[in-house]
Design a protein around this nucleic acid. Structure first.
Lengths: 160, 160
DNA sequence: CAGGGATATTTGCAAATGCATCTAAATCTG
DNA sequence: CAGATTTAGATGCATTTGCAAATATCCCTG
C-alpha cells in the first residue's frame, strides 16, 4: 500500500492513515468541546454564558486589559465580547474605564463583586481540570503544557 | 504569601497562581480557537462551514456512521449537524440511507464527490497541522498525543 | 499641521445555533 | 401484547453570533 518510491519528496499523510485517534486537532476539539459544554451547563445556573465566564476568568488574572486584548485572551470575538461586557457591567461584575492615554480605548476592570463571582465559579473549573488530568502525573502534565506553549507560539496571530 | 498551615488538606490552586500560560484548558482553547478560525477562513471559499467540513473529514475515515455518532465525532450539535447534512446532501457530497436494522436511524454515506471534496480540503488541514507542530519532534508529538488520548478517555461522556 | 489612513470599540442585521418539541419507531414492563 | 418509556432524527423558534458598517480618535506623511 506504500505507493511512494524511496526518493520522492514526502507526501502529506492521509487522515485515514493516521486515524482520527492520532490526529491532535481532532482530539483537542473533542476534549475542549466536552470541557466547554460541561462548564457551560454548570454556568447557566449562575447566569453566565461562555463569553462572560471567560472574560471574568481572564480578568481575575490580568489587570485592566484593553477590550481587544481581553478578546484575544478570552478567545471570544470582539463584538460578542462587547455585548458580554454590557451584561457583566449591568450586573456590577466589571467596570469599563476610558484609557488614560488613548481615548478611543477602553480598559476593563473587574469589581470586587466580579472577583467574588469568579471565586464561586473557579472550583467548578478546577474540578473539570482535575478530571481532565486524572491519572496523568506531574511530569507528563508539565511536558504536555510545555508542548501546548510551543503550539500556541506557532499558531498565534497576535503577540499576546 | 502561603497562608496554608502544614497540615491543612490541599486547597484548590488558584488560577492566578498557576497563571493562564500554564493552564492547559486555556492554552487548548487559544490554540483550537485560532486553528479553527484559520481553517474556517480557508473553507468559506469552498462553500464549507465548520460543521460541514468536520462531517466530511470524519466521513472520510469512518464508514456510514449513524447521525448521532457522526455528531459526537464531529463535535457538532445534532440539530446543527442535521442541517449541515441537508446542505451536503443537496451538494451531492453525502447520502442519507435508512439503517437496515433500525428504521428510526439514518446512516450517512460519503459519495465519491464528497471524497473528492475532502481530498481538496485535506492539504489545508494538513498545513495547519504541520504549522501547529513546527519545531516539535516526533517523540514529543507522540507523547503529546498519548496524553490527549488519556484526557479524552477521562472526559468523554459517550463510549465513542 | 491638514488630510488620509489606521485603530478601538460599538451596533445593525442577517445568518447560524441550540434548546425544546415533534414524529416515528424501538424497547421495556406488567 | 398493550401501554409506557426511551431513542433517532428533524424542525420551529428564540437567542446568539459575527461580519460589516458606523463612530470616534489617533498617528503618519508631506
Amino acid at each position: 500500500m506504500n505507493d511512494q518510491s524511496p526518493h520522492d519528496p514526502p507526501t502529506v499523510p492521509r487522515l485515514g492513515e493516521m486515524g482520527l485517534a492520532n490526529y491532535a486537532p481532532y482530539l483537542m476539539n473533542r476534549i475542549m468541546g466536552r470541557y466547554n459544554a460541561s462548564l457551560r451547563d454548570e454556568m447557566v445556573g449562575l447566569g453566565l454564558s461562555t463569553p462572560k465566564m471567560r472574560a471574568l476568568a481572564v480578568l481575575s488574572v490580568i489587570e485592566a486589559p484593553l477590550i481587544r486584548e481581553l478578546a484575544v485572551y478570552s478567545v471570544v470575538e470582539q463584538s460578542t465580547l462587547s455585548r458580554a461586557l454590557d451584561q457583566l457591567a449591568t450586573e456590577g461584575l466589571i467596570r469599563r474605564a476610558a484609557d488614560a492615554a488613548d481615548s478611543r480605548a477602553v480598559r476593563v476592570h473587574i469589581t470586587p463583586e466580579g472577583r467574588a463571582a469568579f471565586e464561586t465559579l473557579w472550583p467548578r473549573m478546577a474540578d473539570s481540570y482535575a478530571r481532565m488530568f486524572r491519572g496523568i502525573g506531574d511530569d507528563e502534565r508539565r511536558a504536555f503544557v510545555g508542548t501546548l506553549q510551543k503550539m500556541l507560539t506557532n499558531i498565534r496571530k497576535h503577540e499576546i
